[in-house]
Design a protein around this nucleic acid. Structure first.
Lengths: 300, 300
DNA sequence: AAACTGTTTTTTATATGCAAAAATACAAAT
DNA sequence: ATTTGTATTTTTGCATATAAAAAACAGTTT
C-alpha cells in the first residue's frame, strides 16, 4: 500500500544511465549506483535484477556488463513516477483553477478524496502542508475554509515580497566579485536579450525567466525565510499566469525591459540605483496582478 | 478512535455554565447552548443527557431545569480536554528542550510515536505542520532532519523580524486616533511601569508582556504574512526563555526600559524617533539571544 | 411559522494495517 | 579494502477502519 513510484523512478534513471554506456562496458558498483541514481541499495538491486531478467545486462558475481542498450520508450510514464503527494498537489492546483473557489467556500476532505480518487489521509496531509500559503484555513472539527486570492491577499503578498526583495537586492550588490551569482546574472541578462529579440513568438517563455531571475536575487539574501517565501510567490504567479492572458505579450515585453534595467543596476552595485530599478519593477508588477484580479475568469 | 476531548471540554464548560444559574432556573435551549459553549448540538445533547442521568438537571420535553449545582471538582482534568494534536505539540516541545537535538540529527516518526505513546499518523501530522518553522526538514522516504536553533538560524530570524517590525511600527504611527490599538498600547505602558516597580520579584513575568507588546505592534501591519511570522518568534522565545536564566532579571529590566522608550516613540508618531527606538531594542534583543546560544545548556 | 427537539447522514480525528523502501548486518568473494 | 549475496529489521507512505463530532433532515411544540 505504499506505491512503487520510487522503483519506477529508479528504473527510468537506470535506463538513462545505461544509455550513456557502450555495449560491453562494466556498470558501476551498487554503492556507486546508489548515489548516482539516489535510491537505496535495496531498490538498485531490484532494478538490476529486472534488467538482467530482460537480458539488457549480465551479472556475473562482481562484474556487471551491458549487453544491449535499453530504449528510452521502455521507461515508465512520467505520471507513474510521481509520488502520491506530488500527484495530489498537481490535482489540487488544477482543481483550484477549474472550480475557482470563492473566499468563504468550504472544502471538505472526503469530497476531494473522492474527486481525486485518493485516500483522505493523502488529502489531509496535503491540505495541512498547503495551508502554509494562507490560501486555506483549517476549521477544527469541521472542514477547510478557502480564503481566496483576493485583492487584500495580493497586496499583503506584494508588501512582503517588496520588503524581501529590496533587502535581497541590496545584499546582491555586496556579493564578492568571484561569486557565481554574477555569472548567473550575466547568463540571465543574455537570456533576457534573446527573449526580447523573439518576443512576438516566445513571449510566454517569460514566466520561467522571471522566476529564475527573482529567485537568483532572493537567494543572495542567504536567509531561509526570505528564500522560502519565494515558494508562495512562484505558486501564485504560476497560478495567475494560467488565466491572465490579456495583453500578455505587451506586459511581458515591458517587464523584460524593467528586468534589464534592474540587472544593469545590480551590476553597477550602486545601492540607490538598485533601489530605484527594483521599486519601479514592483510597481508595475503589482499593477499587473491587481488589474488581472479584476478581470473575470474566461468561461471555459 | 477519535478521542472524546471535545465532549470533556464541553462537559467542563457546562459545569461552569450551570454554576452561574440558580436552582430551579431554566437552561437555555440547545441551540443557544451550542453557541455559548461552542460545540455542536450533538455534543451538547450528549452532555445534557449525562447531567440528567446524574440528576443535576431534569429534562421535560422543551423545558430543562437545574436541580442542584455541580461542583467544580467534578470537571475532567485539563489534560484530558486537550486534543491529541495539542498534546503532541506540547510533548514535542518538551522533548526538544530535554533531548536538545543537534543540527543534522535525524528524528524518526516511529521512535517519537513510541516515546510519546501516540500513533505515527499523529506524529506525522504534527511534524508536517511544525516544519513550517524550518527547525526540521523532511527527507523523503527517510526521516526528518533536525536543523537546529543555530546562530545562523537566529540571525536570519532576526533579520526578518526586524524588517517586519520596522514596517509594522511605521504603520502603527499612522493608525487613526480612535483605533483601539492606542488604548491597548496605553494599557501596556501601565503594565510595563508596574512590572518595572516590582521587577525584583516579578521579572519572569516579562516574557508575557513582551509577547503582548510585539504582537500588538505587528498586528498594526494588517498583513497576514507578517502577523503569521510572529508565531515563530513566539515559539522560539518561549523555548529560549526556558533555559537562558543567566542575568534574567537584569536583561528584562533593560528590555522594559527599551520598551517604554519605544512606546513613547509610538505615541509621538514621529517616524524617525520610532525607527531609532525600535532599532535600539532589536540590537540588544539580538545580542541577548546570540549570547545565550553560546551558553551551554545547564546539565539537568 | 418560528423555535425547539429527535433522528439520520456525513465528516473529521485518530489508530491500525500493510507493502515498498531504506537501513543494517555480516559472511563470502574479488 | 571494496564489492556483493543474503537475510533481517526498521521505517516510511499510503489506505482503511472506526468512534466522536458535526451537519442535515424531519418531525413537534409552542
Amino acid at each position: 500500500m505504499k506505491g512503487d513510484t520510487i522503483y519506477k523512478r529508479t528504473y527510468n534513471r537506470m535506463i538513462v544511465y545505461l544509455g550513456e554506456l557502450k555495449i560491453g562496458d562494466a556498470l558501476d558498483s551498487e554503492n556507486v549506483l546508489k548515489s548516482k541514481l539516489t535510491a537505496s541499495r535495496t531498490t538498485i538491486r531490484k532494478v538490476l535484477q529486472e534488467f538482467e531478467l530482460k537480458q539488457l545486462i549480465v551479472i556475473k558475481s562482481t562484474k556487471k556488463t551491458l549487453l544491449r542498450k535499453p530504449k528510452a520508450k521502455d521507461s515508465f510514464p512520467r505520471a507513474e513516477t510521481l509520488s502520491n503527494a506530488a500527484r495530489i498537489e498537481k490535482k489540487f492546483l488544477e482543481w483550484m483553477l477549474r472550480a475557482d473557489p470563492k473566499p468563504g467556500d468550504i472544502i471538505n476532505e472526503l469530497e476531494l478524496a473522492r474527486q481525486f480518487g485518493v485516500s483522505t489521509s493523502g488529502i489531509r496531509e496535503f491540505l495541512n502542508r498547503f495551508s502554509r500559503f494562507k490560501l486555506i484555513e483549517r476549521r477544527p472539527n469541521s472542514g477547510w475554509c478557502f480564503q481566496g486570492f483576493t485583492e487584500d491577499f495580493a497586496l499583503e503578498l506584494f508588501e512582503v515580497r517588496e520588503l524581501f526583495e529590496m533587502r535581497s537586492a541590496a545584499a546582491f550588490a555586496t556579493l564578492p566579485d568571484n561569486a557565481i551569482a554574477w555569472n548567473e546574472l550575466h547568463v540571465l541578462k543574455i537570456d533576457h536579450k534573446n527573449l526580447l529579440r523573439n518576443i512576438n513568438k516566445d513571449f510566454h517563455n517569460f514566466s520561467d525567466i522571471d522566476e529564475r531571475f527573482h529567485q537568483l536575487v532572493n537567494n543572495a539574501s542567504m536567509n531561509r525565510f526570505i528564500v522560502d517565501f519565494y515558494d508562495l510567490i512562484s505558486l501564485i504567479f504560476h497560478y495567475h499566469y494560467q488565466w491572465n492572458k490579456v495583453d500578455e505579450r505587451k506586459r511581458n515585453k515591458a517587464a523584460i525591459l524593467e528586468h534589464l534595467d534592474y540587472i544593469e543596476a545590480l551590476f553597477s552595485r550602486d545601492p540607490k540605483r538598485i533601489e530605484v530599478a527594483c521599486k519601479k519593477h514592483f510597481i508595475s508588477a503589482r499593477n499587473t496582478l491587481l488589474s488581472s484580479l479584476k478581470t473575470p475568469l474566461p468561461v471555459s
